[in-house]
Structures are given as C-alpha cells and as structure tokens.
Design a protein around this nucleic acid. Sequence first.
RNA 1: GCGACCUUCGUCUAUCGGUUAGGACGGCUGCCUUUCACGCAGCAAAGAGGGGUUCGACUCCCCUAGGUCGCGCCA
Length: 511
Amino acid sequence: MQWYTTGANGKAGARIRAAAGARFPRSTAREFSMSDAVVTRFAPSPTGFLHIGGARTALFNWLYARRFGGKMLLRIEDTDRERSTDAAISAIIDGMRWLGLDWEGEPIYQFARAARHAEAAHQMLAEGKAYKCFATQQELEAMREAARAEKRPPRYDGRWRDRSPQDVAAAEAAGLKPVVRLKAPQEGETVVEDRVQGRVVFPNKDLDDIVLLRSDGNPTYMLAVVVDDHDMGVTHVIRGDDHLTNAARQTHIYQAMGWRVPVMAHIPLIHGSDGAKLSKRHGALGVDAYRALGYLPAALRNYLVRLGWSAGDKEMFSTQEMIDAFDLPQIGRSPARFDFAKLENLNGHYMRASSDKDLLAALLDTLPHLEKGAALAAKLDDSMRAKLLAAMPGLKERAKTLVELLDGARFLYEERPLPLEPKAAETLANGGRAHLAALLPRLAALPEWTAAAAEAVVRAYSEETGAKLGSVAQPLRAALTGRTTSPGIFDVLQVLGRDESLARLKDQADA
RNA sequence: GCGACCUUCGUCUAUCGGUUAGGACGGCUGCCUUUCACGCAGCAAAGAGGGGUUCGACUCCCCUAGGUCGCGCCA
C-alpha cells in the first residue's frame, strides 16, 4: 500500500525527501514492477482551448508512456455540462495532433461513465464508507460563514455523518434530496508519496468529507477521476500540482474502494513572466495561437520539456532524445516562468535545422493559420513554390518564426511596382538611382543569370567607379525588395530571375 | 484564516556536503560582412534573509519573508 494512516504523531506538513538512490518509495517500486505496463492519461476538461500548461502536462504524460513502453490515454472530463463545449473538445484534440502527441484508442468521455461512477458511490454507501447528507446549500453557506468568522478553515462539520437510519429515512420521506459524502478518516494523516513533490503529509482533520454524488445523482469530479483512473488501469497520474491536495482526498476514495493508488506525480504549474499566474498576456494561449504565431511543433515541444525538467546541460532534444532521457526524478518542484524569447530562439534553431523542403512544407501548411498568409496563398503556384524553395536558405536564417519567414519572403510574391519602405526610398533618392541606371545595361548583358555572374558584374562596377560595394548593393536591395534588409542581394537577383529583376531595377532607375 | 508547495544569474536550469557555482536564453563587446541575420570569440550577471548541524553548506534542520496552489453539490 502506498497510502496509510498513522497516528497523529507525525509532524504535520512535513515532507521528507527520499534519500538519493531511494527516490522511489519502495512500496511503489514493488507494486509497479517492470511487468506492469505503464498507463498514463491526459485528462483535460473541455471548457476552453488546450493552453500551454495543459500541453506540457500532456507532453510529460506522453513522454513518460513512451519512455517506459506504455501508453497514454486521453480522457475528456466533461462532467461540467454547463461549461463543456464541443468546440473545446476539438480544439484540444486538434492542438494535441498539431503538437504530435497521440494517444491510445478513442478518447474517453467522462460524462458517459456517470452510471459507473454512481455505482461506485453506492457501493461505498452500502459498505458504510459513505453517507447521505441532507444539509442544504444555505446550511453549507452558514458553515463557511461561521468558519470564516472564527478564522477556522471552511469545512463541512459532518452533521450527517453519523445520523441514525431513522433520521435519514425521515429526511427522505420529507422529499429532501441528499448528496453522498465520503466518510473520510478524521484522525491521523494521509500520505501522498509523490514522485515529484516527495512525501507529502496531510492531517486528516484538514480534509473533510467530500461530496461523491450530487443531489441530482451525478458524480463529482473527485469521484469520477478516481473511478476512471482505476477502471482505465492508469498506473501513473501526472498532472498539475494544483491537484496535490486533491490527491490526498482521492486517496481516501481509493482507500474506501480498496483500490491501489496509482503513482502520483504533481508537476509545478507554469507561471507568467512576472511570476504570477499565467494569463493570456503571458502566453496562456491555446496551442493554436502558437501555431498562428509561427512556432514549429518540435520547437514548442523542446521548449516545454525544458520548462521544469532537465537532463544536465542539454538544451536541444529531438523527440527521440526526449523520450530516451525523460523521467520523473528530473522534474523540478518550483514553478517555471514562461519566456517567449527563449521559445523564439529555439524556434529559430529548429527552422535553420530544417531542410529547405521541410520548412517550405511547414510554411505552406501553416499558411491558413497565419494572419497574413492569404497574400502568399493567393499567389501560390509551381513557379512560386520553386522561388520559395530557392530562396529558403537565405530566408530561414533570418527568421525566428514562420511569421517572420513569410514576411521575409514578401519580396518574392509582391507585384511590381514594389512599394518602398521609407528607408529604401531614401537609399534610392540619395544617389542610388544613378548606380541602378549604370548597372542596368551591364546586368542585362549577362549571358547567364546567376548569383555569381551578377556578383562579378557588380563588384567590377564597384571597383571601376570606386563606389563602395555597400553603396551599390543597398540601392539594388531597395529596388529589388523594397526594403533595406533582405537575403544576400545576389541570391535575390538569381531567385527573382532575369526578367523580374531587370524590370524591378528599371522601375526604380526610371523613377 | 487554515493547509500544502516553492525560492541558484533578468529567465530556464546544473550542482545531489568540499566547484574559480557550470550551461542555455536575453543583454553588452568584438570578429565576419553588400543590409539584416547566421556563425564565431569574449564580458557582465545568482545561492531571499536569519539562525543552527558540520572540519566544511547552495546542498541537511529550524525560523522569517515573499510567491504559488488548494480549502464548491467547478474541474
């Protein structure tokens, strides 16, 4: 057994970290030996999109299952009928697919299992491990009020815990609808052996008799989770540490049902850059937002895995490397702050490491999700694809996101006459046009249109006239791209091709 | 209010009693250079505070402070 109740002689709240080499509670190690296949689950409630914290939780569950040859299940916790939506369900599923996190079998819908949850509650009722409570909302509210006034923790006072069958019968005869409450231990303490948090001890007096079944007969989250995790054969519960106290309460349910408690791993939540709870402003966006921001799934995975988890100094992890290195002991216990700058840096690495072909595919696939993607989508044909591919080496090292990549590629699909950015216009106005006019015939005379050939001509011109290369290259850039920054200008000439290049140069030389 | 958890450079982290406290992002210098990037080289930057234990503490214990989470017939 992993949980047990001791006399109230232990120090409340004490957490003893397992010594090195014995980090896993012995009992756990024995119960989940190598012969037990690991089963993890990701259990989001579909009341909103898949946010970044949820995505990391899913990733950790997925990695752990992969690492130990097990499987991850997906359970949609839709018991809150008011707030659960189909849109949220598809957003979650879509988000996981995009992130490359798959799960075993069909998603399990918790609400569909309500009858089974109720059955468990009735079993506990029959065995005297739970009881009917007829306290009204008003009474409960009064209890909380009183507790607050006396500066006591708000707690159910157990007024129906030991009522006589007659009292219960009378209340039922009066037409009152009871909730079913767990008869939780009141003495001693409950221990959660957590693989991340260590051994966490809760005095039972602080954990009250939780509601199992609502007065309408529907199960509560607390019951549903335990019954589902048990029935689904979940061996490892990896979730946010906001559930840590729930783990103690849920332990009581496992205890009452006589079920084995799964291995618990409560991972710290992700905070915003100011240390406060993650809000939209901080990056608590749905994963779809990260897609729209132009991040690559592999980069986001890499970023997320290093948030709260580490393997020495290693920063970059391929998916396989992550799987091979991932384990619970290396998860830290302090909350991490979300940092867009690092994500962006990582994304840049992944973009540069991608083959031109793959990156083009990623860009094209993401186009529908990018704010300004339509402009390129409208121009997309084989010739445009070829240009994008040819320009990719120069483009990708100048972009940290697909959004920047798209922006950098704009000169490829913009129509003549090109709009000029102010600085580009300035470059042309300050003597740039003269260089263009001089260069135009030389370029036009080129027998073959390549970057190298163009470079030779421009360099020769620069030497002959004594003009610095930069003072010639910048006007070219301005005329060809409308900007003052771009990939190498000779590559631009080559990618654009002879006709388009000469036309753009002429546009500006004549202006 | 009660309880739990957390606290190493600005950020993510390494360290598992003995290190000039390491790496990465970001910042700053410089190199490269047709622009911007990329790349390369270098610099600055940390153990919340206070007590213990110990020959020795970032590391173990206690207290304080700050932060986060939880305390629903929400999940």
